[in-house]
């Protein structure tokens, strides 16, 4: 194991986030705050409570997930797309590093950024609404698992993308709608029964449900289903990454 290389990639990527601090941290925090103002304060004044939880507090886990998903994907996608785009990928490919080590460095750094961001948003939220966390350990497990899984997905997208449009396409057209329709702002039993069934095909529902359970002990779907879904998604991403490096897809001629 080339430990120096993994650490080097990891630290370099984190340093890059520091360079783009505003983009990496400040803008998600601002947009989350805006969600609180619009949904928490404006709409929350009408809805007041969902399953016994104040609406403002109810949407916090979903909002964190929303940010976690989109930021993990776009961070990791950009991190690997960037060297492909400016040509510096040659160095990575010619270095004595295995594909596993490359993934560990890049995905590790992207996931770290997302987790930190998630915690920052959590801290921001605590200014707006009173929060309680029933299962802190599980909260961290969901946070990390989700960050890693979606950073992997982002990594795959970054390798697949051969233009900036594609790089933004997936986060914008797939992740954001799935997250919005995943129960961030509502409990799925507030939907008509037909839509409830459709919703069960949305993997993000399981993530948000599991994550919200770690806060308030309430679930839309069983906690086991949530864990299985995240794990299955993680396994699928790992398989895709393994295939990419084995075939050199979009990396080697």
């Amino acid at each position: 194991m080339n430990v120096h290389a993994v650490r080097t990639i990891y630290m370099y990527e984190l340093a890059r986030a520091w360079r783009t601090l505003f983009q990496s941290v400040v803008s998600p925090v601002i947009s989350t705050s805006l969600y609180f103002v619009v949904f928490g304060a404006a709409i929350g004044s009408r809805i007041t409570e969902v399953d016994g939880v104040a609406y403002g507090a109810f949407i916090v886990p979903g909002l964190i997930m929303l940010m976690l998903l989109t930021q993990s994907v776009s961070n990791a996608a950009f991190a690997i797309y960037f060297p492909k785009f400016n040509g510096t990928i040659y160095e990575l490919l010619s270095a004595p590093v295995s594909s596993f080590e490359i993934v560990l460095g890049y995905v590790g750094a992207a996931a770290t950024k997302s987790v930190i961001l998630g915690l920052i948003i959590l801290a921001t939220a605590s200014f707006f609404v009173p929060l309680q966390i029933a299962h802190p350990l599980w909260m961290v497990v969901f946070l990390v698992l989700t960050a890693v899984t979606f950073s992997l997905l982002g990594f795959i997208i970054g390798i697949w993308a051969d233009g900036f449009e594609k790089l933004q396409f997936i986060p914008l057209l797939i992740i954001t709608p799935l997250a919005f329709l995943g129960g961030t702002f509502y409990s799925i039993d507030m939907l008509p029964p037909a839509w409830q069934t459709v919703t069960l095909f949305n993997p993000v529902v399981y993530l948000i449900s599991g994550f919200r359970w770690s806060f308030y002990g309430l679930t839309d779907v069983s906690i086991l289903a949530s864990l299985v879904t995240v794990s299955a998604f993680l396994a699928a991403c790992l398989a895709a990454v393994w295939w990419i490096f084995r075939t050199g897809y979009r990396l080697k001629a």
């Binding site: 120096h4 360079r19 960037f82 040509g87």
Partner: peptide, 30 residues
Amino acid sequence: IGLVPQELATDAFAKVHATVTYSRGLFGKP
């Protein structure tokens, strides 16, 4: 192996010292 490719390929935002230090680490050297 050390490779200097034909095309100039650089991370425009990186600093000279940092990018050179990075290369050493990437090749597994302390």
